[in-house]
Design a protein around this nucleic acid. Structure first.
Lengths: 218, 218
DNA sequence: CATGCTGGTGAACCATGGTTCATTCCTTGT
DNA sequence: ACAAGGAATGAACCATGGTTCACCAGCATG
């Protein structure tokens, strides 16, 4: 025996892996998953194409991992807000604002996660992502219904509507011209939030600090 | 000169063209645009692959045409309702119901039109389709606002929300289990319509007869 | 029916882009 | 230093599927 993986090597391997994932993620946020080509990833990561296959069994596996990492961050953020202690309406508004606000600010990446045409393997991953979103919305709605803040509605359907309305209005083909989004993203976000609340039967409830462009951190 | 197209030939050509389009449309409604392969289209239409190129300059051109024909029918239907004489709220409800109802019944085809991952060329076509939808919604909302039926809102954003909410709730990855859609599509449609109206700030106007709802847990 | 065309054919062609693998480069333990 | 691996390489390979093109078939004219 003349070789055993040492810590230093393990670290280097981990670095390379990270580098590959980062390169792929960068490509996604520049040009969507369509721009992820193995040769490009390799070039960007500074390795040979063959090397990619020492770390990921296929392009699909690599893309899945990228999708997961990126979407996990988004979902974690929303889940945290949703699990807070405030009133359901308060949390709901915050979640909607955060979701919409982040989407409008990181449009390219959000587009990739939410709307970009991609093939079935990745669509699966997206499906999970969206479902989780919807579950967060549904949970909040249910909370609000349980304690009488909201009227009774079918939370699953309402949640699906919300999960569809936001991306479409913000980053889909129907999104307002981008210059408007750039000039006054907060107004657009508020308008969308209002729509979603109204749809859920919440009459601009808890009209808290809804006054002026209050921005949720991006 | 020894040849000029005669009527009989012209008719045959038109038939072949139709046959090709029909074959392609059938493939779409079976397996989406992803299932449209030139060899398959040719087989189904009973012609050789080369023949396809005598009628359409490329696969893209063929798919565009199919997309247009199918979507034109849908849009025409909605546009007709929207241009009626009734109150705006009445027309809006009808349009929403028609849109949602048709989508839930012809789910495969609607999915292809509204949500299937497809490449950029066709996405353009879809973009037009969706935009037209949104314009119909926006027009109705505006009508209602102008004559005081509805509150003042940003009709463009609301329209985009509607256009996103319906497909997502019905046929996207967030759609309720299909058995529920199959069992009680009307209930689901009504729930979605309710959401959209609420989002637009319309308090269940012109409510047809939809008193009993039940909350289903996620 | 001969001629001149157009319509039709489908196997070959080609572009794209993911994947492989023989080879080379490094790292480790003796 | 050197042998014995593992790690990295990247050009070749291959699969997919759209497109072409040399050739054949059939219809319209004189």
């Amino acid at each position: 025996m003349a070789y055993r993986k040492t810590d230093k090597v393990a670290a280097r391997l981990a670095d390379t892996r990270r580098g590959i994932l980062d390169a792929a993620r960068d490509l996604v946020s520049e040009g969507g998953f369509a721009a992820v080509q193995m040769t490009e990833v390799a070039k960007k990561a500074g390795v040979a194409t063959g090397t990619l296959y020492r770390y990921f069994s296929s392009k699909e596996a690599l893309c899945r991992q990228v999708f997961r990492e990126v979407s996990a961050r988004e979902m974690g953020m929303l889940a945290e807000i949703a699990s807070g202690e405030e009133a359901a309406s308060e949390r709901l508004v915050k979640v909607l604002r955060t979701f919409a606000g982040r989407a409008v600010r990181g449009r390219r990446l959000s587009y990739a996660l939410l709307a970009e045409p991609l093939d079935v393997n990745l669509a699966e991953e997206r499906s999970f992502f969206r479902r989780t979103h919807a579950e967060i919305f549904a949970g909040l709605l249910e909370d609000g219904i349980d304690n009488g803040e909201f009227p009774e509605i079918d939370v699953r359907i309402a949640a699906a509507c919300i999960a569809g309305a936001i991306p479409t209005a913000l980053i889909g083909p129907l999104a307002p011209e981008s210059h408007e989004l750039d000039n006054n993203p907060d107004r657009v976000v508020e308008e969308i939030v209002k729509f979603c609340l109204g749809g859920a039967g919440i009459a601009l409830a808890a009209g808290k600090s809804n006054t002026r462009e209050r921005r949720t951190t991006a």
